[in-house]
């Protein structure tokens, strides 16, 4: 892979290419896990810094053997879990709850549901999945990771990873179908159904 060869060649220059090519994947997953754009941005930057520090200590063969996406996502998840653990020890620094989503729910949505609105709603529903299923669905269907790499991130056999994806997806489908965007245009209607 050209990206990895470039890293071996000149770490800093290769690393800029790595960041450019993988920042979208790392940020997209981080956003789904933290549910906050600013936390996701910090987490993404911290992930790449940690990755850089690790790469400084890797020899050539170890760099060339990397699967960058699952490697970066794994670093991101460890960083995120550490920050959650630290935050629970210092309650005043709890990560902020997902304000944008709550805002969306409180909005009096009488107008037609725009696609941005639907996207936000879908993001909110994804956020309701249990962590392992959420992660599996996001890795598979938001950023399109191959199943083998998803299994590596989840540290489980491929079969288990697949079942996380499919169970997550079917739970999401139930939630999603409860708000059919084309037919039903307001959230008040959905609240009545509950």
């Amino acid at each position: 892979m050209a990206l990895l060869a470039c890293l071996v060649d000149d770490l800093d220059e290769g690393f800029a290419n790595l960041v450019r090519s993988e920042q979208r994947v790392v940020y997209s997953v981080a956003l789904r896990m933290t549910r906050s754009p600013s936390e996701a941005e910090d987490l993404t930057a911290e992930t790449f810094l940690r990755a850089y520090r690790a790469l400084r200590g890797y020899d050539r063969s170890r760099v060339l053997a990397l699967r960058p996406r699952s490697w970066l996502v794994t670093i991101m998840l460890n960083t995120w879990r550490n920050s959650l653990r630290d935050a629970s020890r210092r309650p005043n620094l709890m990560p902020s709850a997902d304000l944008p989503d709550r805002h969306a729910e409180d909005q009096d949505v009488e107008q037609a549901v725009e696609s941005a609105e639907r996207q936000r709603e879908l993001g909110r529903l994804v956020g309701q999945l249990p962590v392992a299923q959420r992660l599996a669905v996001v890795l598979r269907h938001v950023v399109g990771l191959p199943m083998a790499e998803i299994a590596a991130v989840l540290k489980c056999p491929e079969g288990t990873a697949k079942s996380h994806v499919s169970r997550g997806l079917s739970k999401l489908r139930t939630l999603y179908d409860a708000v059919p965007p084309s037919r039903e245009c307001n959230f008040a209607g959905r609240r009545e159904q509950r």
Binding site: R24, Y27, L122, V126, V142
Partner: peptide, 10 residues
């Protein structure tokens, strides 16, 4: 729809 949740950092 899930695919559209992939986005660039700000």
């Amino acid at each position: 729809a899930l695919r559209t949740l992939s986005c660039h950092p700000p």
